[in-house]
Design a protein around this nucleic acid. Structure first.
Lengths: 214, 214
DNA sequence: GTCTATAATTTGATAGAC
DNA sequence: GTCTATCAAATTATAGAC
């Protein structure tokens, strides 16, 4: 299982180049330069660009979805689970912010070919138990009745999109990289509290906002 | 300003191919086939792939950001503005769901080159007046005190990400295209209410959820 | 304006020396 | 294992006939 130093150097370089340029935009020449190695070595170790790409894509998908998905299926209080999921997800992606746009773009450009990666071993994202927990909490009155799919979509959107749209946000908000990282870091709490507030029962305040639609 | 039928057919075909495959993955041959035209015509009308690509990218960016941005700067009540923004944005993107991932991927792959597009005429996204409105509403007690940047990020994330991650969501949720469109459509109201709930003043219920952190 | 033929590069991949 | 030289295919772009 232990790869040679050269092998690892190639994968690391390929990871950087593929995540920046994408499968079609990446060049084997550039990956070799990035690794400081001869071009022929890439084919000696991995035979083809496609093979190297699939290693990078699978690795990225696992890091992107794997860890946080385990939290969703863990044995935790619903609110605490949401807090841990959000904090963990943002922390992980902050170490490699291009992962989301890379994985999602490749899945979009070639869904027939790479969708199976999402269902491969070590990933297998199964929201069933999380959804059941949501429905049980709603039935018990611990949270409002909500569509589990919408809730999950809200959580993931709030966590992941700021990475996907980072270039646009930085331009539109007119802020530099450093400041943007601070904003992302603040979202570890911001997002969790927003989500939890949105599902916490309304209690006696049910009528608070019901008179503003007319 | 009126292009020939052939010119339009090329742009339409280029739009479809570029949005699906991206700049690097698209092929002039495929665009020609998609348009049912000879390959030479693409160069006769647009000279190079790069030129054609920039037309498609600029057009997509305008449709993606332009219309909804105008709503943000319109003279509207804050809550109503949020409702209109969300509904308008989702409606527009539903007509061409690949726009977000396309634009954001190209900006990510080549920010130095294409960032200026976001600041070009007909776009010029300026959140200053919207941010001022948010601060004024907070000062007046109409909403809670919030970071305008985080609020805007929340709104855009909830609207745009479900399109960016549609392939993943459909797989993970195990649902077909048709059902997914319904979920997206439901978000026109879902997202607006979630956002508005999150900024509406807490009033007398300030202590409701403050005893669950210990 | 539209088509065919072809030029000019680029790029992934292989062969073979060391 | 690593390097150089080279092949074969693909791709953008142009030239020129019609």
């Amino acid at each position: 299982m232990e790869g040679s130093s050269t092998e690892e150097a190639i994968i690391d370089a390929a990871h950087r180049v593929f995540l920046k340029k994408g499968r079609a935009g990446a060049r084997m020449r550039e990956i070799a330069e990035e690794a400081g190695l001869n071009r022929g070595l890439l084919h000696y170790y991995f035979r083809s660009k496609e093979k190297l790409f699939e290693i990078v894509l699978l690795g990225s998908a696992k890091r992107l979805f794997g860890g946080s998905m385990r939290i969703l299926n863990a044995d935790l209080d619903l609110f605490e689970k949401i807090r841990q999921f959000v904090a963990n997800f943002i922390t992980v992606v902050l170490t490699d912010p291009s992962m989301p746009i890379f994985v999602l773009h490749e899945l979009h450009a070639n869904p027939e070919r790479y969708s199976r990666l999402l269902l491969s071993e070590g990933l297998r994202p199964d929201p069933a138990s999380f959804f059941a927990q949501i429905r049980a909490a709603a039935a018990a009155g611990v949270i409002r009745p909500v569509d589990p799919a919408q809730l999950m979509m809200n959580i993931v959107s709030l966590c992941m999109f700021p990475f996907v749209g980072s270039v646009s946000f930085k331009i539109i908000l007119g802020i530099p990289e450093e400041r943007y990282k601070e904003i992302l870091d603040a979202r570890k709490k911001e997002v969790a509290e927003l989500i939890i507030d949105s599902i916490r029962p309304l209690e006696e305040t049910a009528g608070t906002g019901r008179d503003r639609d007319a």
